Deep mutational scan, measured.
Amino acid sequence: TPAEQLLSKCPWKEYKSDSGKPYYYNSQTKESRWAKPKELEDLEGYQNTIV
């Protein structure tokens, strides 16, 4: 779907730490963070409005 294509192009991906806590990693900037990036939230919100 178009929304899945947008998400696949987003540099932010969700991973799980050893303790199972989700964290987010940007493959372009090599940045990681615990809080979900706004860019990823926006894309997921867009995906939910299409489905």
Rank of each mutant, 00 (worst) to 15 (best):
47 Q>S: 05
25 Y>R: 04
6 L>V: 15
23 Y>K: 04
51 V>I: 11
42 D>N: 14
44 E>D: 14
13 K>V: 10
18 D>V: 08
16 K>F: 09
13 K>G: 02
35 A>L: 12
11 P>Q: 09
4 E>Q: 02
42 D>P: 03
26 N>C: 00
11 P>E: 00
19 S>M: 09
50 I>F: 06
11 P>F: 13
16 K>H: 12
17 S>E: 07
19 S>E: 10
11 P>N: 02
15 Y>S: 02
32 S>I: 13
42 D>C: 01
3 A>K: 15
36 K>T: 06
35 A>P: 01
8 S>D: 14
39 E>T: 05
38 K>G: 07
16 K>C: 00
10 C>R: 04
12 W>H: 09
18 D>S: 14
5 Q>F: 10
2 P>N: 15
1 T>G: 01
9 K>G: 09
5 Q>D: 12
11 P>Y: 13
14 E>H: 04
40 L>F: 12
21 K>M: 07
24 Y>W: 12
44 E>M: 08
1 T>I: 10
14 E>W: 05
45 G>D: 13
22 P>L: 12
4 E>R: 10
45 G>M: 11
24 Y>G: 01
11 P>V: 06
48 N>T: 10
2 P>H: 05
41 E>M: 10
40 L>S: 03
16 K>M: 07
34 W>R: 13
10 C>E: 03
44 E>H: 08
28 Q>D: 04
29 T>C: 10
17 S>G: 08
20 G>D: 01
45 G>W: 04
28 Q>L: 11
18 D>H: 09
5 Q>Y: 02
26 N>I: 00
20 G>L: 01
18 D>A: 08
22 P>W: 03
31 E>S: 01
18 D>E: 11
18 D>I: 12
12 W>Y: 01
17 S>L: 05
34 W>F: 09
11 P>R: 05
39 E>Y: 00
26 N>K: 04
27 S>I: 14
4 E>D: 12
17 S>Y: 04
31 E>H: 02
28 Q>V: 13
38 K>E: 09
29 T>K: 01
30 K>W: 00
48 N>D: 04
17 S>N: 11
12 W>Q: 01
4 E>V: 03
47 Q>T: 04
41 E>N: 09
6 L>H: 05
3 A>N: 15
42 D>F: 14
13 K>T: 15
18 D>P: 13
36 K>G: 02
49 T>I: 04
6 L>K: 11
30 K>C: 15
36 K>V: 06
16 K>R: 08
4 E>K: 02
30 K>N: 09
42 D>Y: 09
40 L>M: 11
17 S>K: 04
29 T>E: 04
29 T>S: 04
45 G>T: 12
42 D>V: 07
18 D>Q: 08
